Amino acid sequence: KAKLLVLLYAFVATDADTICIGYHANNSTDTVDTILEKNVAVTHSVNLLEDSHNGKLCKLKGIAPLQLGKCNITGWLLGNPECDSLLPARSWSYIVETPNSENGACYPGDLIDYEELREQLSSVSSLERFEIFPKESSWPNHTFNGVTVSCSHRGKSSFYRNLLWLTKKGDSYPKLTNSYVNNKGKEVLVLWGVHHPSSSDEQQSLYSNGNAYVSVASSNYNRRFTPEIAARPKVRDQHGRMNYYWTLLEPGDTIIFEATGNLIAPWYAFALSRGFESGIITSNASMHECNTKCQTPQGAINSNLPFQNIHPVTIGECPKYVRSTKLRMVTGLRNIPSIQYRGLFGAIAGFIEGGWTGMIDGWYGYHHQNEQGSGYAADQKSTQNAINGITNKVNSVIEKMNTQFTAVGKEFNNLEKRMENLNKKVDDGFLDIWTYNAELLVLLENERTLDFHDLNVKNLYEKVKSQLKNNAKEIGNGCFEFYHKCDNECMESVRNGTYDYPKYSEESKLNR
């Protein structure tokens, strides 16, 4: 008799109507990190870190770059004969040098303040090359056809396309004075040089004057150069050297050249137009028929994500570079809930034993079982409120962090190594801060989002509990077992918050 009662009780308990509160689960393989956990499985997430590029040089917003090819900045601007293909260059979106560009200054020497000139050019998007001192009329008392084997072109001695090597005419090199007034309405880049012979005999042979000088002056520039005559090792078949100089001439300003020898005179100059998204990159990537809004030396990035880990040097509207390998923000729920887990921000989770793959029309909802059958029903209101809140948060985070910009490298010469090392340390410090901030932001927001979901499920549970009161009992896994019969209409009233407690209280009292 006792065995019969136990079996009867078990049958009745199993047959009781139930309603459970749960949440969506799926077959997603997404994982995120939080402050407290690593690799948390979630139903949905968004990636904030771009880690792919196309490996190509592309047009930037429809404008092609200027590819210097086998030449570098120095060779292009001075007019190395091997860089003749660059003479027609007028406009570009950015400038590309190759790491091993070999054609710079063909006659050995240095372009002074080269690093600063590169910085200036990094904001130039177009130029006009014009004859600042016409070759045939500007130097009537001097020979202007100086050439050298060091600047050979097609097997013949030649010289820079933008400079003139002035030497004596006959047996004399009379003092020369020439000036140019900038009437271009924009900055003009003027380049010139000073020749330093290897011996007094060479000085006399070329310029006749043993104590020659070169003077260059404008409103913002004033220097006097004296040739340094000295024996030097042979470089590119030359014992002599040429140093090259430049200045930016403001609109309306005048530049005056005065010399008694050794002047490498300007022939062509450049009127410059600035462009905020221009820059110089060093890259071996090849040019393709493609378009982008962000270019790196590795390749083009076409992404609206706020961060990238491809390269710190970028041109155009680019994500911020960070050292992170993963920045994924959760938008959905835990896919593998932890039992009795309390989140960092106070939300209680884990009283549900598992997510439901059968509930596909919402994030949170119900599963019921009664004599009429069983089924899932999503709670659309709480789901939609959660979707709206999380979507707004993700968009806000992306908008705040998605300050796209150009980031170019800084140039230092060989004598500025300590400054370069200090600059690298400062840049590394800023990069570490950006990386830390980005990672911390994602970790915190992921923790908040998961706790937010847990709290929403808990609130749904409490909503049902407050309606049923003692007409049902909690069975410990997020479910309630009714003390009365609850048909589909009754189940719907529980879900929509209109459950009639008094209607079922007498039946429940008897069954309790």
Score class of each variant (00 low, 15 high):
Ser158Cys: 04
Asn220Arg: 12
Leu66Asn: 10
Gly261Thr: 00
Arg154Met: 10
Ile21Val: 15
Ile73Tyr: 01
Ser91Lys: 11
Leu5Trp: 15
Trp267Thr: 09
Thr34Val: 05
Phe225Lys: 01
Leu117Gly: 03
Leu60Trp: 02
Asn262Arg: 01
Val32Thr: 01
Phe133Ala: 09
Gly146Lys: 13
Glu277Asp: 15
Tyr213Lys: 11
Ser126Met: 06
Ser200Trp: 01
Leu68Pro: 02
Asn47Asp: 13
Gln238Gly: 01
Arg154Trp: 08
Thr98Trp: 01
His195Lys: 02
Ala89Ser: 12
Ala10Ile: 14
Ser45Val: 05
Gly62Lys: 10
Asp15Trp: 11
Thr260Glu: 12
Ala2Cys: 10
Gly104Ile: 01
Trp165Ala: 03
Lys1Ile: 14
Lys168His: 11
His153Arg: 13
Glu202Ile: 09
Trp92Met: 06
Ala269Gln: 04
Ala89His: 12
Asp84Phe: 05
Lys56Val: 12
His24Cys: 06
Arg154Pro: 00
Glu258His: 14
Leu86Ser: 07
Leu191Ile: 15
Ser125Glu: 11
Asn26Trp: 07
Thr43Met: 08
Glu277Val: 06
Glu258Lys: 09
Ala89Tyr: 10
Thr167Arg: 06
Ser93Tyr: 07
Arg223Leu: 09
Ile255Met: 15
Thr177Tyr: 13
His195Arg: 12
Leu117Tyr: 07
Met242Pro: 01
Lys61Asn: 15
Trp192Phe: 15
Ala271Val: 15
Asn145Glu: 12
Cys83Val: 11
Ile256Val: 10
Leu48Thr: 06
Val190Pro: 00
Lys1His: 07
Tyr213Ser: 09
Leu49Val: 07
Ile264Pro: 01
Leu48Met: 05
Gly155Leu: 02
Ile280Arg: 03
Ser91Ala: 05
Tyr268Gly: 00
Cys20Asp: 15
Ser200Ala: 15
Asn27Tyr: 06
Leu49Gly: 08
Leu60Asp: 02
Pro251Phe: 07
Thr247Cys: 12
Asn182Glu: 08
Leu60Pro: 05
Ser179Trp: 13
Gly79Thr: 04
Asp33Leu: 07
Val124Thr: 14
Leu78Ile: 14
Tyr268Phe: 14
Asp253Glu: 15
Asp201Asn: 10
Asp110His: 06
Pro81Gly: 05
Arg236Trp: 12
Tyr180Thr: 02
His196Met: 13
Ala89Leu: 13
Ile132Val: 11
Leu166Gly: 00
Gln204Met: 10
Ser150Glu: 04
Gly252Arg: 11
Gly69Trp: 00
Val188His: 02
Phe276Gln: 13
Gly261Cys: 10
Asp15Glu: 13
Val40Ile: 15
Arg241Leu: 11
Phe159Trp: 10
Thr43Tyr: 07
Arg274Pro: 10
Trp139Tyr: 12
Tyr213His: 14
Lys1Trp: 03
Gly55Asp: 11
Ala265Pro: 05
Phe133Trp: 10
Asn103Asp: 00
Glu50Arg: 08
Tyr23Asn: 01
Leu164His: 09
Thr34Arg: 03
Leu111Ile: 15
Asp33Arg: 08
Ala231Cys: 07
Val40Trp: 12
Asn209His: 13
Lys56Glu: 00
Lys234Gln: 08
Gly240Asn: 12
Ser150Met: 04
Asn26Ile: 11
Ser215Pro: 00
Leu4Lys: 14
Val40Thr: 09
Asn162Arg: 00
Phe276His: 11
Thr247Gly: 00
Ile19Ser: 09
Val181Trp: 15
Leu5Ile: 14
Gly69Phe: 12
Pro99Cys: 00
His153Val: 12
Lys234Ile: 14
Leu163Gln: 02
Ser278Cys: 01
Thr254Asn: 10
Gln67Lys: 07
Val149Cys: 04
Asn26Thr: 07
Glu136Gln: 07
Glu187Phe: 14
Ser208Phe: 11
Ser52Cys: 00
Thr14Gln: 01
Leu176Ser: 11
Trp192Asn: 00
Lys59Cys: 02
Ser93Val: 03
Leu249Trp: 03
Ser126Glu: 13
Thr98Lys: 06
Ala10Trp: 13
Ser138Phe: 11
Tyr94Cys: 03
Ala212Lys: 13
Cys106Asp: 02
Ile95Gln: 05
Glu228Arg: 09
Tyr221Lys: 02
Tyr114Val: 06
Ser215Gly: 06
Gly279Val: 06
Lys234Met: 01
Trp165Cys: 09
Ser172Met: 07
Tyr180Ser: 00
Ser218Trp: 11
His24Phe: 01
Thr29Val: 00
Ile21Met: 05
Ile280Met: 08
Phe159His: 10
Pro65Val: 05
Pro134Ile: 02
Asn141Ala: 03
Leu36Gly: 01
Glu258Ile: 11
Gln238Glu: 02
Ile19Ala: 05
Val194Thr: 04
Asn47Lys: 11
Thr18Trp: 00
Gly146Asp: 07
Val190Ile: 15
Asp113Ala: 15
Ser273Trp: 15
Arg118Met: 01
Leu263Lys: 02
Phe133His: 05
Pro88Phe: 15
Cys58Trp: 09
Glu115Trp: 08
Leu189Met: 08
Phe133Gly: 00
Thr226Leu: 12
Arg90Ala: 09
Pro251Val: 02
Asn47His: 02
Glu128Trp: 03
Asp17Trp: 10
Leu111Pro: 00
Pro88Thr: 10
Gly104Arg: 06
Gln238Asn: 11
Gly155Tyr: 00
Phe257Ile: 15
Phe276Trp: 10
Val235Asp: 11
Glu119Lys: 14
Cys71Asp: 03
Trp92Gln: 02
Phe270Lys: 13
Pro99Ile: 13
Asn80Glu: 05
Glu128His: 13
Ser93Gly: 15
His44Pro: 00
Thr31Arg: 11
Gly75Glu: 10
Asp51Asn: 14
Ser158Pro: 00
Thr167Ile: 09
Pro266Met: 12
Ser126Cys: 01
Tyr221Cys: 01
Ser28Lys: 12
Phe159Glu: 03
Tyr244Thr: 07
Ile95Tyr: 02
Asn27His: 03
Arg161Ala: 06
Val149Gly: 02
Glu102Phe: 06
Leu7Lys: 04
Pro174Val: 08
Leu127Pro: 00
Thr260Gln: 13
Tyr107Asp: 03
Val188Leu: 14
Leu166Glu: 01
Cys151Asp: 09
Ser208Tyr: 11
His153Leu: 06
Trp76Ala: 03
Ile281Cys: 07
Leu164Ala: 13
Glu131Lys: 06
Ala41Asn: 03
Glu136Ser: 13
Thr29Trp: 15
Asn72Cys: 10
Ala212Gln: 00
Leu36Met: 04
Ala41Ser: 00
Arg90Met: 10
Pro174Trp: 11
Ser278Ala: 15
Asn262Asp: 06
Ser218Val: 12
Ser198Lys: 08
Gln67Thr: 11
Gly210Glu: 10
Ala13Pro: 09
His239Asp: 00
Ile35Ser: 06
Gly75His: 02
Phe130Ile: 14
Tyr268Thr: 08
Ala271Lys: 13
Thr29Ser: 12
Glu116Val: 01
Gly193Ala: 15
Val194Lys: 00
Ile73Thr: 06
His44Asn: 09
Arg236Cys: 00
Val12Ser: 14
Ala265Val: 14
Leu60Ser: 01
Ser101Trp: 07
Gly210Tyr: 09
Tyr173Glu: 08
Thr282Cys: 09
Pro99Phe: 11
Val147Phe: 05
Cys151Val: 04
Thr29Tyr: 00
Ser179Ile: 10
Gly155Asn: 12
Gly69Asp: 13
Asp30Thr: 13
Lys156Phe: 03
Lys3Pro: 13
Leu87Gly: 09
Ala10Glu: 02
Gly210Ser: 08
Phe225Thr: 10
Ile255Ala: 01
Arg90Thr: 10
Ser278Tyr: 00
Gly69Tyr: 06
Asp30Cys: 04
Lys1Glu: 07
Pro233Ile: 13
Gly252Asn: 03
Ser200Phe: 06
Gly240Pro: 05
Thr167Phe: 07
Val42Ile: 14
Pro266Val: 02
Pro140Gln: 15
Cys71Asn: 03
Trp92Asn: 07
Ser123Ile: 13
Leu163Met: 15
Asp201Trp: 01
Ser138Leu: 04
Lys184Glu: 10
Thr254Gln: 13
Gln203Arg: 00
Glu116His: 02
Lys59Thr: 10
Asn162Thr: 12
His153Phe: 03
Leu176Thr: 14
Gly155His: 06
Ala25Gly: 00
Ala10Met: 09
Val149Ile: 06
Gly69Thr: 09
Val12Asp: 08
Ile280Asn: 04
Leu87Arg: 01
Asp253Asn: 03
Gly210His: 13
Ile112Ser: 15
Tyr268Pro: 00
His239Ala: 10
Cys83Ser: 07
Gly193Ile: 00
Gly104Asp: 10
His196Arg: 02
Leu66Tyr: 11
Asp171Pro: 13
Ala64Ser: 10
Glu82Asn: 14
Ser150Asp: 02
Lys3Gln: 12
Val188Ala: 09
Tyr244Met: 11
Arg118Thr: 13
Ser172Cys: 00
Asn211Leu: 11
Ala89Trp: 05
Arg129Tyr: 05
Glu82Ala: 15
Pro174Ser: 14
Leu7Asn: 03
Tyr23Lys: 10
Ile21Leu: 15
Asp113Met: 10
Leu5Lys: 04
